[in-house]
Computed example of a mutant assay.
Amino acid sequence: MDLVALDIGGTNARFAVATIGGNGEIALDEPITLPTSDYVSLQTAWQEFAKRLGREPPKHAAIAIAGPVTGETVRMTNNSWTIRTHALDEQLGLETFTVLNDFAAVAHAVARVPDSEFCHLAGPDTPLPKEGTISVIGPGTGLGVAHFHRFEGGYHVQATEGGHIDFAPVDAVDDAILARLRSRHRRVSVERIVSGPGIVDIYHSLAALERKSVAELDDRTIWQQGVGNEDPLAAAAVERFCLSLGSAAGDYALAHGAGGVAIAGGLGYRIRNTLRQSGFAERFRFKGRYEQMMAGIPVRLITHPQPGLFGAAAAFAKEHAS
């Protein structure tokens, strides 16, 4: 069976034709990526995808959306699209479709791909457990959080909006970052810091602590200069980001009762070597009386190139092809 797998994020919408084999295996064609800011709606982006595909798209679709999927109207968290799920069959010419949260889709991918599609980040260098709960966390344009529970014969995914819980500072530097953000926002969620754009406020907070005057740089420049060790302050901002991601990942693992954690998303993959060398693992474990328990949780990073698309197709297969 062929279907269109679609992963709509805050910055890009990724399309790919997926094939679900008779044995349940999933194969993805080469993705087509469209910037969401170039299109006023999913419908116009779909038309461009069909044009680039060069043929009529399949009549089935799995659509992963960066935002809460509740009711018949989904408003994107980090872009301007509004998606009316009850009208997708007419708007896109579909016969069957599945709509789910984007990080629920990533959780489906984490549950389905083999261990060869992961690399070790922290804790014991072992595969993610075959039973129990696994947290899935991914910093990107925002912060995606989901979890799933494995049991004999299957798994169940739970979408969340965990990226929007309150930011919890751990030390004086975190306090300074929080103070900067609190002066600008009514409320400071963890996503304000643990996301790609969050590096800007981290960078300026560190500059203020050192009483340095710095240029207004965009997040991509700071990431490039920091990961490449081209600028000491940018490198310090990247290290601080890794600490905050470790703290947040540990918090989610505690809240979910997780026996394993998967880090996902393009940003996590790009800085995987930096994460290993940073204080990420130490901050993940830094949970007071539960430090020993946290040290026993494997933390792995998914290396599959398109987990959102793969996971969307997996969710469709679970709903329609099982």
Rank of each mutant, 00 (worst) to 15 (best):
A321I: 01
A313D: 08
S116K: 07
D251P: 09
R289N: 14
D89E: 09
Y203P: 09
R55H: 11
H156D: 12
R300S: 05
R276S: 06
I83P: 05
D174M: 02
V113E: 06
E90F: 05
A107G: 09
G54K: 15
F15C: 04
A264E: 04
A66Q: 00
D231T: 03
F241D: 11
N23M: 05
Q43T: 14
A317M: 00
R52I: 00
Q306P: 06
E319K: 13
P124N: 15
A295N: 12
L3W: 13
E210P: 02
C242Y: 11
A176D: 08
R272T: 10
P169K: 10
D166Y: 07
P197Q: 05
A61I: 04
P58I: 00
V194P: 05
F49L: 01
G226D: 14
L121Q: 15
L275H: 10
Y39H: 14
K318H: 10
A66R: 01
G198M: 04
T82L: 01
F167R: 10
V145R: 10
G162W: 05
A66N: 01
R272W: 08
E291F: 07
P57Q: 10
S41H: 10
S205Y: 06
L143Q: 09
T126I: 09
P127M: 00
S41P: 01
Q225D: 15
L217D: 10
V113W: 00
G22S: 08
N101H: 12
G265H: 12
